[in-house]
Amino acid sequence: MASPVHQFEIHPLIPIQMGGVDVSFTNSALFMVLAVVASYVFLVLGMGGRSLVPGRWQSLAEVTYEFVANMVRDNVGKEGARYFPFIFTLFMFVTLGNILGMMPYGFTYTSHIAVTGALALTVFIGVTIIGFARHGLHFLRMFFPHGAPILTAPILIPIELISYLSRPFSLSVRLFANMTVGHIMLKVLAGFIVTVPLLLGIVPLAATIGITILEFGIAFLQAYVFTILSCIYLNDAINMH
């Protein structure tokens, strides 16, 4: 039987070399493209009617829009509207990565640290640039809270600095670990169904069904967490705290 981590293997579908670098179109890339296509179909074709009274798909598209729009408005405020398309793209990309990975024979590109790390670093670097662009050197005040006694600076500043710098790690590892562990657990449990004596297999089957439902919840939840943390970081950079 295949190893539980077999599902994370990346294999090229169309080998491509660019300047000596391997950028083959892989199963991971395929699911990224599927996510883009699915987002387009869902949001653009779903809104096809542009009806005043929405149908099912249009309702779902509108709910998704308002969900992210409210998240940005509540966490970042009015000035967050400029970054709404980016946050929305991030949410769709992570959500669909998680959900498509739940499909049979699917591949979860969000279970790869390279992908989550790149997304988290993009958010981190982007937010830091926005912070310095808006507040200049004053942005460094972030690392020393207002009203704290000056004597606490030698302790507070390193703590704040470390907590700030660890953001991309926690952001990327949270998503990557959740997706990886969930899928491994499902694989292992599902493996038990066939390895244990026939009737006893019902127990891991029931567990697998339960965990599958839970994993769908986690797929949404982790996408939500990734997005809302990005919003919170963005808010720190725009409004400072």
Binding site: V23, T26, A35, A114, V115, L119
Partner: peptide, 13 residues
């Protein structure tokens, strides 16, 4: 696999 992942991530995103 990182270069390919990052390349396609950038393109798709």
């Amino acid at each position: 696999s990182f270069p390919s992942q990052l390349f396609w991530l950038a393109v798709c995103f």
